[in-house]
Amino acid sequence: MAMLEVKDLQVYYGMIQAIKGISFEVNAGEIIALIGANGAGKTTTLHTITGLLSPKAGSVIFEGQDITKTPAHKIVGLGMAHVPEGRRVFAQLTVYQNLKMGAYTRKDKTEIDQMLETVYRRFPRLEERKNQVAGTLSGGEQQMLAMGRALMSKPKLVLMDEPSMGLSPILVNEIFDIIRSLNKAGTTVLLVEQNAKKALAVADRAYVLETGRIVQSGDAKVLMNDESIKKAYLGE
């Protein structure tokens, strides 16, 4: 059984249909990429999965439980964390406070401290800047903070929305290395990216989204060599 199952999802903004019935699944241990151009519906899909938007039709099933109507604030407690587009760190709080916020649903204090240590080990720069206000961090550091904050909830599945956006090529590589090592450590990843090349390189499988529909899917390595994908998304 898949860890996350999205079935025939349809989402509207007012009269406009943004998602026109998509279905896909994420199995435990995988990295799944959702690629597509601007406005294809990638972010809308993630927002619907974590309850920030509600679908008109279709369902979202996480570990066998229907979470379509579960409010957004109850999702993270189920083991699914969302690193939103544009990082959305709490700019006026310190790095440390941001990370603590990530563990908001957790009660065990020693477990939170352990997670904090794990996150600091993975992102040493966050520890160096733990007392700095998050709004003054660089874009790459904010991305690391957003990821670290998501990890604080000890998620089984992490949704990442455009983690490479606005970062320098070196930082992009660093962020993708982190995604890979997170996955090796046992976290399942659903990745939304405009940078299709990087996303396909790191993913096991991928789905191609075009104006609210899935037009192609399959093994990431196969898609990478697909002529139409190459032309449309890889700039070759």
């Binding site: 920030l52 409010p71 649903t105």
Partner: peptide, 13 residues
């Protein structure tokens, strides 16, 4: 600061 991000942390807005 950010209602959406707060919800993602598990906060009941």
């Amino acid at each position: 600061e950010d209602k959406g991000a707060a919800q993602l942390m598990g906060i009941n807005v």
